[in-house]
């Protein structure tokens, strides 16, 4: 992961036991990369009394136990981390190894009902969109609702719009795109993202002690396969292809 360049952070109280951290910068890409870098550092140097954090696209909500710490301490710690803490990727053994995933995806009309409209929007042929997705290298930026891997790195000519009307019941394993991001639907449910394909793998398995095999910073590539190939894979729980240090 690249280290984002950012100087100051904004820390605002949010209710009686949380603060919201944002990065005041005119460039959206820097705000987004910066908050990911800040989150990694903050969790690596987690101050006493901090219960959890919630990642937004351009923000980090820090929830704390007001009986163990105070807003002033959390704010001070956040500023210290932003200014001084080394990135967890800088030091050895600070962070677990980055994992790499090659995820087979079926890109046919059934699996990707929004592919045609995405292609039209981008002024490309659907086959070229599939190729662009396959050639993109994605980095998992955060785990969204129900541990869905939210990824950066879609290389297409322009950002992809969300659906005007959200779909109400998208199948698990659906590969979805919006902006320059991709996400995989872990459970049946609604989404405003554009559904372009589907993987036969189980992304989240709640019967396992750790329901997912991926984390933020991991690398994902999508490998187009036919429906028959997907069936022949007998794909189960998604596992990394390799673990690079």
């Amino acid at each position: 992961m690249t280290t984002a360049q950012y100087g100051a952070i904004t820390v605002e109280p949010f209710g009686d036991s949380a603060v919201m951290v944002t990065i005041p910068h005119a460039d959206q890409a820097i705000r987004r990369a910066g908050i990911v870098a800040f989150r990694d550092r903050f969790l690596a140097h987690r101050p006493h009394g901090v219960l959890d954090v919630v990642s937004g696209l351009e923000s980090l909500l820090i929830e704390f136990d007001p009986m163990q710490t105070a807003l002033e301490h959390v704010e001070y710690a956040a500023r210290l981390v932003a200014r001084w803490a080394p990135s967890p990727t800088d030091g050895p053994a600070r962070r677990r190894a980055v994992r790499t995933f090659a995820i087979p995806v079926v890109f046919d009309d059934d699996s990707g009902p929004d592919m045609a409209s995405v292609a039209e929007e981008l002024g490309m042929a659907p086959a070229d969109v599939v190729e662009a997705i396959a050639e993109s290298t994605f980095t998992i930026a955060l785990l969204g609702a129900a541990m869905a891997p939210m990824m950066d790195g879609l290389k297409v000519p322009g950002p992809v719009r969300r659906r005007a009307e959200p779909r109400t019941d998208v199948a698990p394993g659906a590969i979805m795109i919006a902006g320059t991001n991709a996400i995989i639907q872990p459970f049946p449910g609604p989404t405003g993202w554009r559904v372009v394909g589907r993987t036969p793998h189980t992304i989240v398995d709640i019967s396992r002690p750790d329901p997912v095999s991926f984390g933020t910073g991991d690398i994902v590539r999508f490998v187009p396969v036919t429906r028959d190939e997907a069936c022949a894979l007998d794909a189960g729980f998604l596992l990394p292809t390799e673990e690079a240090v």
């Binding site: 036991s17 949380a18 919201m20 954090v53 919630v54 937004g56 696209l57 351009e58 980090l60 909500l61």
Partner: peptide, 8 residues
């Protein structure tokens, strides 16, 4: 932009 929110 979508962001985290506290309970309540």
């Amino acid at each position: 932009v979508s962001h985290g929110v506290p309970i309540g």
